[in-house]
Structure formats: C-alpha cells, structure tokens
C-alpha cells in the first residue's frame, strides 16, 4: 500500500497506547493483590509456605515473560478456556508482577527492624495486627520508590502482549508499519509514546528514593 503517516495513524497509535495503559493497570492491580499474597507467604512462620513461595518466585523470575505468556495462552487454550487476548496477557502479567512485587515487598518488610516485631508482641498484638498496624506502615514508605519503579517495568512488559495479538501500542505500531514501511518513523513514534509514559514514573521513583534517603539520614 505505502503512503505517508497521517493523523489517522497517530490516532490509531494513541488508541493502542490507551490499551497499553489499561493492560498495565490491570496487570499491576491484579499483580499487587497476588504479590501481597506472595509477600505474606515469603515472610510466613510456616516453613512450607515460605518454601512454596520461594520456588514460585524463583521459577517465575527464572523464566522469560514471553514464555509465561505462551504457557498461559496455550495452556488455558488446550484445557478449553478460550481467553480473549486481553485476559491472557493480563493473567500472564499478573503472574509476572506477583513474583517481582512479592519479592520487592518482602525486602521492604524485612528491612523493618526485628525489634519492631518484638515490641509489638510485647504489647500482645497478634501477628496480623502487628503486620497491619506496625510493620506495613513503615514498610510502605520504603516500598514506594521501588514499586513506582516497577510500574515502568510493567508498562514496558505489556509490549509482549502484542505477540498474542492484543492490539496495544506495540501491535498498533506493527500494524501501521506494515502498511507504511517506515519503521524508523513508526517505531520511533511508538518509542516516544512509551517514553512519555515511563520517563515521568522513573523520575518520580528516583525523587521518592532521594527523599527517603534524606529522611533516613536525618533520622539516623
């Protein structure tokens, strides 16, 4: 076909970008819930729970997201569940997020000094109360910068959903390029759009981290 890049192409890319955001939000929300569970298991008292969640995290972090995506896509397909691409991608990304977020948050929970647990136990709080009222509020402050940083990771990872045919930004760019054959321009614009989403988050994450470090140094 050929032709030149028009406003219609741009609108098409922007629509793809919107789906990138939707998919990212979905993956992040579902992944947060699952990741919270992973974090609880990783810090549980029961050894078996810790071991199971450890293996889970190791396996997911040791497997490419693209392969997770294929396993979910084909796996659910063969057991007869026909997932729409959005859901297949959402489930894969959720699995991926849960392992990474679980691990990030475990680190934050464990960086709260042991003495905080002991002090709360001294006040006869249950383990759950201690976690919710004492530990998590402290861990949350430490967890914010890396969690925001991980959002960038999620946004970038959603580009893989294009592989199973979900039309987000990367897929949209492929479609446009297939008709125009101007890869530098089309993928360049897609790159700029991704950058516009990710860079502010990166900056934000870094500034949060700086503030946190300053706060810590003053407290020390």
């Amino acid at each position: 076909m050929g032709g030149s890049f028009t406003i219609n192409h741009l609108v098409y890319l922007l629509q793809g970008m919107m789906w990138t955001v939707v998919l990212s939000a979905l993956a992040f929300l579902l992944g947060s819930v699952a990741g919270f569970g992973v974090m609880l298991m990783r810090t549980a008292r029961t050894r078996l729970l810790r071991q199971i969640s450890f293996v889970y995290v190791q396996v997911i972090q040791g497997t490419p997201l693209l392969i997770v995506l294929f396993v979910v896509y084909f796996g659910l397909g063969v057991v007869g569940i026909e997932l729409p691409p959005l859901l297949a991608a959402g489930v894969s990304l959720m699995v991926y997020c849960s392992a990474f977020l679980g691990e990030i948050w475990r680190g934050c929970v464990e960086s709260v000094p042991r003495t905080q647990w002991e002090a709360a136990e001294g006040l006869a709080l249950t383990r759950w109360q201690t976690l919710v009222d004492v530990i998590l509020p402290q861990a949350a402050r430490i967890a914010t910068p890396p969690t925001v940083g991980f959002l960038v990771q999620v946004l970038k990872s959603t580009s893989l959903a294009s592989v199973v045919g979900f039309v987000e930004l990367t897929r949209a760019a492929q479609v446009v390029n297939n008709s125009l054959f101007t890869p530098f321009l089309v993928f360049g614009i897609a790159g700029v759009l991704y950058f516009a989403l990710c860079y502010p988050l990166s900056r934000w994450s870094r500034s949060l981290e700086r503030k946190l470090n300053v706060g810590r140094r003053q407290a020390a």
Partner: peptide, 8 residues
C-alpha cells in the same frame, strides 16, 4: 530504560 525492548 524507558522504552520496551521489543520496540527497540
């Protein structure tokens, strides 16, 4: 660092 590897 702020664009997907696939796009690169």
């Amino acid at each position: 660092r702020n664009t997907p590897y696939l796009i690169q």
